[in-house]
Nucleic acid binder design. Structure first.
Lengths: 158, 158
DNA sequence: TATGAGGCAGCATTTTATGCTGCGAATTCT
DNA sequence: AGAATTCGCAGCATAAAATGCTGCCTCATA
């Protein structure tokens, strides 16, 4: 399946407003509602759209702390990565985990209730003997830019 | 305004599925449709819900490269931060920018078409004389965990 | 130029959103 | 403790949207 300009526009609009009605979306992409809906269904079915999510302003609910953590493992066999990952997956507060090149092995992103909770989690992880050699924490003081979407426009000019 | 358990549950469900119908949402939180919709509207109006977004599998559209970049500025006056930020804001490929403590000043997250585009952007930024002292790049090889939502459950047990 | 396939508009039906009314529970004031 | 008040709920009615279907047009192909 290959996507045309209209499909890209649909993805772009749904990224901006995931709860737009099909009727409005159809107008934006210059289609009538039915073919527009067919395309959306297809994009979902084929996995181009993985889901829809409300963006919550978690800061309004209570104090939270975001931390980026660079982790180095002691060993680098398949099993070492797998063991680390399966432990990290169980931590709700880990919202991202990336395997990276450049001095460290993993870059984690935590969203926690505060520095206390973060430290508790890290102590637990290091005590678990899942092969963590060392880690370095970047506490987020402020997040001037946090986009909910991918730069579709720059990657696929419309 | 203070949120009760039902509001938290609504936020949780809308985070999991931003396109759930109000009727279904009402069932999940044990309300009838009308008061459920009232609460959702209120949560939007008060800013607890900032918007809705489709999650796009951008990897299926074409090759992309994610990079985390740690940036240190030469000086640390208000104006130095502001100048840097206003330049970075104009770059579509910067999807996150965080002010962090711990050795570096900013942590950026890029989503680009490839290493070439990334380098072009960084060259442009460093040439712009916006006070960048140095930067270090972590190229993402793989992202085993990328959650679209905040850990509401651990922060506000239900 | 004729033929076939794909995709579109428009319509009909089912489902959902949304505003309104009256009822019940919890809270506060006397 | 009792009465009044307020808040939030369920249920209903209307308007809007989703969704499946039919026939037409256009573009590609032989």
């Amino acid at each position: 399946m290959k996507l045309d300009r209209i499909d890209i526009k649909i993805l772009y609009e749904l990224q901006k407003n995931g709860r737009i009605t099909n009727v409005e979306l159809a107008e934006l992409v210059n289609l009538s509602p039915s073919p527009c809906l067919m395309r959306v269904k297809k994009l979902q079915q084929e996995g181009y759209i993985e889901g829809y999510s409300a963006q919550i302003n978690i800061g309004k609910l209570g104090q939270t702390l975001t931390v980026f953590t660079e982790v180095t493992l002691k060993n680098h066999r398949q099993i070492d990565f797998a063991r680390f990952l399966s432990a990290v997956e169980k931590v709700d507060q880990v919202v991202e985990c990336h395997l990276v090149s450049g001095g460290y092995d993993y870059m984690l992103k935590f969203v926690t209730a505060g520095i206390g909770e973060y430290q508790t989690i890290m102590e637990r992880l290091t005590d678990m003997d899942i092969g963590i050699d060392k880690y370095f924490s970047f506490v987020v003081l402020k997040s001037p830019i946090v986009k909910a979407h991918m730069p579709l426009t720059s990657l696929f000019p419309m």
